[in-house]
């Protein structure tokens, strides 16, 4: 099972041990090799006083359960304490939290895509679409399609100063106005998911319904 290339590299520094985990192999191979090294080859170094462990995953992004199995494997040695699991992919996750500001007009047949949340200054015309991994705020008319939380983030919202969409999507939920959420006034509204169902509310209610998004609390 030991291929020419090592998938798990263990280095030491002042703070403790750094586990450099290769990001090109499968997660299974990685876990197997990690267990093998901990139990067979590196026994001597890994016994004794408490050692802090920093895990670096490179470009690999891991799910929560994969993270847990990594921690469990390392924890199996009583003296190892996992301090942090880092992935370069976290930068992309942080982009999700970042608010991008763009201006222009999305016309029919065009798609505007954004890795994070977006403040779009301008119109989204019928036949055009705006897709973001985070929230969508539009200063202008939303007449086309908007898809917030495109990676499955159900807490994402879509807000527009003039809400006249052909279709709204949040995560995997698709909603089609006006039959599903009739409204007369179409000013400064936002769409959100309430227990898996799309709802529309006035923009000034946003801080109550999604208190966690970038709230300004005053000083």
């Amino acid at each position: 099972m030991m291929a020419a290339k090592h998938h798990v590299t263990i280095k030491g520094n002042k703070e403790g041990l750094i586990f450099l985990l290769d990001d090109s192999c499968t997660f299974e191979t990685l876990l197997q090799e990690l267990r093998y090294k901990l139990e067979k080859t590196h026994q001597k170094i890994l016994t004794g006083p408490i050692v802090h462990v920093f895990v670096k995953l490179g470009n690999r992004s891991v799910s929560e359960s994969e993270k847990q199995s990594l921690i469990a494997a390392i924890k199996s040695k009583g003296n190892l304490i996992v301090q942090r699991i880092e992935s370069d992919d976290d930068d992309a996750d942080q982009a999700h939290d970042h608010l991008f500001i763009h201006k222009g007009i999305v016309r029919s047949g065009q798609t505007f895509e954004c890795a994070g949340s977006v403040l779009y200054v301008g119109d989204i015309n019928p036949g055009g679409s705006i897709v973001a991994r985070g929230d969508i705020f539009i200063m202008g008319s939303l007449r086309g399609l908007a898809h917030a939380g495109s990676d499955g983030e159900e807490s994402a919202v879509i807000a527009a100063s003039h809400m006249r969409p052909t279709q709204l999507r949040i995560a995997g939920i698709i909603s089609r106005p006006p039959d599903e959420w009739g409204f007369d006034e179409t000013h400064m509204d936002f769409a959100y998911l309430n227990e898996g169902k799309m709802e529309i509310n006035k923009l000034n209610q946003l801080h109550k319904i999604r208190p966690d998004i970038r709230e300004y609390k005053g000083v």
Binding site: R107, S108, G109, Q110, N125, P126, G127, G128
Partner: peptide, 16 residues
Amino acid sequence: ENAAVRDADRIIGLLE
């Protein structure tokens, strides 16, 4: 007409 306006919008995007 809606269809003509929609296509005009598409064309404007392509012209840009």
